[in-house]
Structure formats: C-alpha cells, structure tokens
C-alpha cells in the first residue's frame, strides 16, 4: 500500500469515489440503470466531440469554433432533411452533408494554420464567427424542428451512447494501434524532430483538424436529434465543455500528452457531477462552485502524476549520465 501509485490511478479513484458518495447520499435515485443511462446520454455529444478534438489537442492545436461549427452542421442537416420531407433517404443525405461540412471546416482550419503558419487560436477564433453567421443565415435565425422519426431516433434511448462508444473506440484504436496515431503524438511532442525524421507534419496536422471537424458535426447531429431541433444557438457553451473534459482528462493543451480514456473520463465526470448535483437539489447558483472545485482537484491529481513521471525521468537521465563516468 505504501508503494501504491495514487497519482497514476487518480482518474478511476475519483470516479469510484464519486459513485460511492452519491450511492450513499442518494441510493434509490442514483443506483439504477436508468440513471446511469441518463448520465451517459447527457454527455454523449461531448464524448463524441472530444474523441475527435483530442487529435487537435495532441498536436498542440486548439479549436475555438466547436460550438458554432456544431450549430452550423446541425442546421445544415435539419435544413436539408426538412426540404426533402423527412424521409429516411432525406435523413441520410442530411447527415452526410452535415458531416461533409464539418470535415471541410476542419480542412479549412488545418490548411490555413499549416500553410500560413497562423496560430490555430486565431484561425478558429475567426471562423467561429463565420460559422455562427452562416448558421444564422441558413436557419433565418429560427429554430428548425427536427421531429421526423428517422432523425429523432438518433437521440433516443441508448443510441447516443452507442455512437459515443463507437467513436471513442475508433479514436482509441487509431491513436494507440496505428502509425498515424504515433505520428500525432510525435508531431505534438516535437514538430521539428518529427519533420526531420520524415513525418509529413503538415498532412498529419490537416488530418487532425479534419477528424475534429467531422466529430464536431456528428456531435451536432446527436444533439439536434436529442432536442429535436436545430438552431444557431444549439452549441452554446460546448467549446468550454469539450475543452474542460479534455483538461480534466489530463490532455495537455501544449500537445503530445494525453489519452482518449482520459478524455472520456473527463466527459463522464462532468455528467456525474451534473447528475449528482441535480439529484441533491443543489441550486444552480452553487453548482458552479462545486463543479469548479472538483475540476481543480481532478486537475491537481493529474499534475501530481505528471510531476511524478518527470521526477522518475530525471532520475533515469541522472543514472544514465553517471554510468559512463563510472566506467
């Protein structure tokens, strides 16, 4: 127990601690399958989006246009589906169009940041206004109802959770098991060294933004299906939510560090927090305070873990440096 690495297992420990606390305080309400489904459905859109934006964070980029790109994609899907009468084919075409819009937006971000060497912060800061404007023009600043069964089903029961799991698994596989995944970490860790070692840094970066745009559009579709409507304000607040989930999950916004399970942990922890505070009837004016404190604790644990790792690395380097002297 003395050698137990608390900081390494901080994420599962925090999750289990939360579940235990809520189970004791609200056993009947909290400990039920339907409640866990509620928690997961409430964070499904964030989970889907963070599965893609993690690629951008890992290369040291950022996307501030998540919220408005989400809204624009949802508005594109809803407009096309409405114009085509809401049939299954209309839904398929609407979804494909929205996903294409998301991917194209990502391509635009990737191309501008890599070709003109403009920081992603500035590019996505500018495009967020463009996407908002486009969403407002397309929707004529109105809410577009999306009640067609073929579309609404995407937001019902456990369908959003299935999408989140599929996106997370694919993202995890790509990051852990493919060459592209290794390139992403390499580019984020040291772009210059990656370039020298023959990695096409520009292409990898563009691909990361395309993936992020694609998953953001998918998040928008799921959110529109859940609320059965799309409008330019649909994504309000989601840029913060996605970045918060990533940061809680230990993803470094400087790039090169972080894992997908960490990001999903961040999203689920946010869902657990919202659910727990709601079940305990905590007023919304106080819930922000509690949420902030929990996020600070989660991030502090993660920082401890990183500090531990850095110390170990430093020790290894010292030993390595000392060895030749001895010989």
């Amino acid at each position: 127990m003395k050698n137990f690495n608390w900081s390494k297992y901080s994420k599962p420990i925090i999750l289990v601690a939360f579940v235990i606390i809520l189970s004791v305080l609200k056993p009947a309400e909290f400990l039920s399958v339907s409640n866990f489904i509620s928690i997961l459905t409430s964070v499904a859109a964030i989970g889907i989006m963070v599965s893609g934006t993690i690629f951008v964070f890992l290369i040291g980029g950022i996307d501030l246009s998540i919220a408005t790109l989400l809204s624009m994609s949802a508005v594109v899907a809803a407009t096309i589906i409405t114009k085509m009468g809401g049939s299954v084919i209309a839904v398929v075409i609407g979804l494909l169009a929205a996903l294409a819009v998301g991917a194209l937006a990502g391509l635009l971000h990737g191309y501008i940041t890599t070709t003109f060497a403009i920081p992603a912060f500035l590019v996505t800061f500018a495009t967020q206004s463009i996407f908002l404007g486009l969403a407002q023009v397309l929707s004529n600043n109105n809410k577009i109802a999306c009640t067609w069964p073929a579309f609404a089903i995407l937001g019902q029961a456990i369908v959003p959770i299935i999408f989140m799991v599929v996106f997370a698994l694919v993202s995890w596989y790509v990051l852990r098991k493919t060459v592209f995944g290794r390139y992403v970490y390499a580019v984020g860790g040291n772009p210059t060294a990656s370039e020298i070692s023959g990695i096409n840094v520009k292409l990898v970066s563009i691909m990361c933004y395309v993936i992020s745009g694609f998953t953001t559009a998918m998040g928008g579709i799921i959110l529109a299906a859940q609320s059965q409507q799309a409008d330019s304000a649909l994504g309000a607040g989601f840029t913060n939510d996605v970045i918060t989930a990533a940061v809680i999950g230990g993803i470094s916004l400087l790039g090169g560090e972080g894992t997908l399970p960490g990001a999903i942990f961040g999203a689920v922890l946010m869902g657990l927090l919202n659910n727990g505070l709601s079940l305990m009837n905590v007023d919304s004016t106080q819930s922000g305070l509690v949420k902030g404190l929990v996020i600070v604790v989660a991030v502090a644990f993660d920082a401890m873990h990183h500090a531990d790792q850095s110390r170990k690395k430093a020790k290894k380097v010292k030993k390595g440096a000392a060895a030749p002297e001895l010989s």
């Binding site: 309400e29 079940l279 009837n281």
Partner: peptide, 9 residues
C-alpha cells in the same frame, strides 16, 4: 437533463 433527474428522484 433536469427533467431526467426529477423523474429519477
């Protein structure tokens, strides 16, 4: 989400 927690409680 709020309604889900109401129904749960």
């Amino acid at each position: 989400t709020v309604m889900e927690s109401f129904m749960q409680q």
